[in-house]
Simulated scan of single mutants.
Amino acid sequence: MPPHHTTSANGPAGAAVVLGVIGLSTSIFFIGGLFGGIGLILGIVALAKAKRAGTGRGKALTGVVTSALGIAVSVLVAVFFVWYANKTQECYRPDSFQQYKQCVHQQLTGN
């Protein structure tokens, strides 16, 4: 007789955790926001299912938190890149990399 394993019947909770971790780990490449968004939706669905079934609440919460963090980091990275591009837009036509570095330094420090 095979051993009896107790597994979570809340599949969306496991998927939310996986997508949340992937979203968080790829959030600096913007794609993390997409994984985080899907993970967040699945996590919310899993929380509702956990309330009915009584299983998977911890995984669902983990999925929601990691997904939300992935989304937040992606948004912060996007905001930083827009700010950086706006702040250094005068530097995009340098003759050399050294000239580019000097221009960026001047734009960011105000010197």
Rank of each mutant, 00 (worst) to 15 (best):
residue 1 M to E: 10
residue 3 P to H: 04
residue 7 T to D: 13
residue 7 T to Y: 07
residue 7 T to P: 00
residue 9 A to Y: 10
residue 11 G to K: 10
residue 12 P to W: 09
residue 13 A to I: 09
residue 14 G to M: 04
residue 17 V to W: 09
residue 18 V to K: 11
residue 27 S to C: 14
residue 28 I to Q: 06
residue 29 F to P: 00
residue 32 G to H: 13
residue 37 G to M: 03
residue 38 I to T: 08
residue 39 G to S: 00
residue 43 G to Y: 01
residue 44 I to D: 03
residue 49 K to G: 01
residue 50 A to L: 08
residue 50 A to W: 02
residue 51 K to C: 00
residue 53 A to Q: 11
residue 53 A to L: 09
residue 55 T to W: 01
residue 55 T to H: 08
residue 57 R to N: 01
residue 60 A to R: 02
residue 61 L to M: 14
residue 62 T to I: 06
residue 62 T to V: 04
residue 63 G to C: 07
residue 64 V to S: 03
residue 65 V to K: 02
residue 65 V to A: 15
residue 66 T to G: 01
residue 66 T to Q: 06
residue 67 S to L: 00
residue 67 S to K: 07
residue 70 G to Q: 04
residue 70 G to H: 09
residue 72 A to V: 14
residue 74 S to W: 02
residue 76 L to T: 13
residue 76 L to D: 11
residue 78 A to G: 14
residue 80 F to A: 14
residue 82 V to L: 15
residue 88 T to H: 08
residue 89 Q to F: 02
residue 89 Q to N: 08
residue 91 C to D: 10
residue 91 C to S: 05
residue 93 R to L: 12
residue 96 S to T: 15
residue 96 S to P: 10
residue 96 S to I: 09
residue 96 S to W: 04
residue 99 Q to F: 02
residue 99 Q to E: 15
residue 102 Q to T: 12
residue 103 C to H: 12
residue 104 V to K: 07
residue 104 V to M: 13
residue 107 Q to I: 00
residue 109 T to M: 10
residue 111 N to E: 12
residue 111 N to M: 07
